[in-house]
Structure formats: structure tokens, C-alpha cells
Write a protein that binds this DNA or RNA. Structure first.
Lengths: 235, 235
DNA sequence: CGATGAGTGGTGCCT
DNA sequence: AGGCACCGCTCATCG
């Protein structure tokens, strides 16, 4: 990784276009070709690009211009004045142990899959990431009387969660009757997807979401905070 | 800005929880108290925190531990071995000219507001960010026969755009009749919001979006690429 | 390669 | 401060 402190300016052209006027900033160039330009506040770089090919040219003022080209975008950085530079070898990508996160939505989803009773008496889990014509729904479960419920899982549920849930329900209701094994007894059963219900399960259900869910006939479940302590990593 | 190359490990607790095992990485500490931990790939830091208060302690192994505390979260970084360190004064926040972006959605929205004819013959702009009970809609326009159209503007329109558009239309249709000035003649007119139509206007309308828009009775408009060349910054 | 959705998303605007 | 939507979002995953 190289860190270069320099008076620089930059022009980006790609998904949008940006211009960064001249000032003293830090350029970070990583071994995979990523480049980012930082000033002295916040974590987000002003400009950046990932895995680009760098080329150096000299402009009319005799200044170095580094052009980073990627598929559909490019970033040109002009170095007006260079202050200092340092380079260090960091952990290789292969040896990077990586960040281990807990309390993610994926884990919450798995916990609900393993503890479907929190969604209601006698509810049975069928499948995670169940495909619908409108994208995969987090959880498909069945009530005791074999009514399908499409469950959208969120840590924090805002309006978008109600949009997603409805989108999945709409698609599933078009499916009609499906023959599948009973999730517990494995007997052959017929599930009528035209009766699919939508449900939002979250640790934090925001007020506006509760209001819109009510309006749309979507159920909600507040997941108890203790889920983390009873979370079991096994598949 | 300080850059420290060190063998380090980190524990974050806050919105989620993460553990970062020991390896050689770069710590970036900015003058506003932001900290980020980078390895040698991609632009995003492994761990980070903004505007925190740092405290140094020594652990049982005699290693330095830097704890960054913010409102509802904290990051503890253990420095197992320090390789090198550099510090440079960068442009001050006051002098940072900042990134100037063009081609943003906000500009596209304004352009359509000023050129409503691309939405159809005789269409008249009423208001940007028009409030609905389900969040503000990008554009409200009227047809010649005073039918309201709620327009969702996007650079790239995917499924979520159809969700938003429908959400706004639903809310507006509940409003019923409203007396307002005619957008051109300023005569007093009565607009019947129960007839509100939804429309998605975008530079790039994805195939799945077109399909779902059709199903939901939402109109779509492909904004011509030349909009940028005819874009006028004036309000 | 595009499509989809999560994220300690970040960031700005408005209530 | 919380709610809401945009972002050159970035990133992983899956087809």
C-alpha cells in the first residue's frame, strides 16, 4: 500500500461525473490497483476507484497525471505538488483473516428459521431465500392449516420492508396450488399459494412501517432481543 | 492525518458486533477523530468509526490499546507491533473545495421539471418533492385534462422504483379533490387526486422494472441521453 | 456478466 | 434527533 500526500485535483467520468478542485490530500493506492483520495475528515474518500489500470502522463504544465481506467469509468488525478510518500507491505489478501460480524440479518434469518414458533403457534419453517418471481423472499413458512407466509426479515424495518413483503406476496399468490412435502411429516401436501400472507419480522419495527403494514394487510413480528443469546451457529 | 502501519486487531461493538483478527494493516486517523483500518484491497475499510474520542490503555501483554468511543458504539484497536507512522497536515475542512458532481438524480429531476413535455404532450409541472402521506414524490405534474401524475425519477430504475411509485400513488389517491392554482394560467382549478397516475422516468429502465410497471399500471418514460447537454442550472 | 439485496452502509434534507 | 431517500453507494451472492 502506498500513501502519497500531494496537492492534487481529480476528474471522474463514469456513472456520473465529478470534479475535485486542487488541494492537499492523501492518495491511497493499494496493491489490487484500488485508488482513493482522502481529505482530513470522515471515512469516505472524496474520489475512488477499484482495481484500475494506472497510467502516468505529463500535462502541459509539466505535472504528473495519473489516469486510472476501469471498464466503464475513469479517474484522472493531477499531482500539482508532492509532499511525501510512504509504502508498506500489508497482510496479503490470502492471509487476511477478515472481519467476523455477528448480529447480521443473515444470522437473524437463520435464527427465525430454527425458531419459527416466535412467528406463531405451530408455525413450520419451509425454506430460506425462497424464490419468487419478484426476487427471493427471506423465509417461507407454513401455518398449521398450511397457509403459506412470506416472511421479510430485517434488523430495522422501514417503509421499504413493506414494499418488499408485498412484492413477494403478489408474486407467490400467482403461483396457485403446489404439491410439496410437509415440512415435518414429509407427507405429500398441497399448498395453496393464492392464500399467501405477508409478514415482516424485525428487531425494530418503525412506526411508519407498522402503519403501512396494517394498511396493506401485512402481519408484523417483533423479534425479542434475546435471540442473540440463544443463537446457534449450526446450520 | 496520521497513517500508522501496524500489526493490529480490533473489536467493534455498536449497531452490530465485529471482531478483526491480528494482521498487518494501515490505521488512518483523521483530525476530526475518525479512524479506519485498511488492508491492501478495495476502498472500504475493515473497521472504522467517525468522530470518536480516543483513549490509550495498556493491556496485560503490555500492548497499546486504542479505544474509540462514540455515542452508541465503540471500537477497540490493539497494536501488537508498530512498523511505521507518518503524519501530514492536509487541507482544512474550511478550505476543502469539495467534490462537484454532475449528472445526479437531483439534476435530472430538475431538468424534467423544466422540460415536462418529454413526459407527454401538454404536460405541466406542478411541484418537485411533492409531499404524500408515504413520503415525498419526486415530481407532481398535470395532464392537459388535469389528471395528476406522480413521477418517480431515477437514473437507473430497478424494482424498487415501481414500489416507490405505487406507494406514492396509493397515498395521493386517498386525498380526493383539491383546489389549487392552474400551473400555467393560475386560475383556480379542482384536481381530482383519486385519479392519480404513477409514472417512472429514468435514463435506464431495467427489463424487470418494465415488466412490473406494466403489471401495476404504472407508465414509464425513457429520458433521452441529451438531457445533460440541454441542462440549465438555473432554478 | 447482470440482477438482487444487505450494510456498523454514509450523507444530506427535512420534520 | 429521527425519518426518509439518494449514492459514481460498496460489497457479496447467485443465476
Amino acid at each position: 500500500m502506498r500513501v502519497i500526500f500531494a496537492d492534487c485535483s481529480a476528474v471522474y467520468a463514469g456513472r456520473g461525473d465529478t470534479i475535485l478542485a486542487r488541494a492537499k490530500r492523501a492518495l491511497i493506492i493499494k496493491s489490487d490497483g484500488s485508488i482513493s483520495i482522502h481529505n482530513d475528515s470522515a471515512n469516505k474518500p472524496l474520489n475512488y476507484m477499484k482495481m484500475a489500470n494506472m497510467e502516468e502522463t505529463i500535462n502541459e504544465q509539466g505535472e504528473r497525471v495519473w489516469t486510472f481506467d476501469a471498464r466503464h469509468e475513469s479517474l484522472a488525478v493531477t499531482l500539482h505538488e508532492l509532499y511525501s510518500e510512504v509504502e508498506e507491505e500489508l497482510v496479503s489478501k490470502a492471509d487476511e483473516p477478515g472481519l467476523v460480524a455477528s448480529g447480521t440479518e443473515a444470522q437473524l434469518q437463520q435464527w427465525i428459521f430454527q425458531n419459527p414458533h416466535i412467528l406463531g403457534e405451530g408455525i413450520m419453517s419451509v425454506q430460506r431465500e425462497f424464490p419468487t418471481g419478484n426476487g427471493p423472499v427471506d423465509l417461507l413458512v407454513l401455518t398449521q392449516d398450511l397457509t403459506p407466509i412470506a416472511v421479510e426479515v430485517k434488523r430495522v424495518a422501514t417503509l421499504g420492508a413493506a414494499d418488499q413483503a408485498r412484492r413477494y406476496v403478489e408474486s407467490l399468490r400467482e403461483v396457485g396450488e403446489v404439491v410439496m412435502p410437509h415440512p415435518v411429516t414429509y407427507e405429500e401436501i398441497t399448498v395453496d399459494f393464492s392464500r399467501t400472507i405477508g409478514r415482516i419480522a424485525a428487531l425494530d419495527l418503525r412506526p411508519r412501517l407498522l402503519a403501512i403494514a396494517e394498511k396493506r394487510g401485512l402481519d408484523t413480528t417483533q423479534v425479542p432481543a434475546f435471540w442473540r443469546s440463544s443463537y446457534d451457529e449450526r446450520e
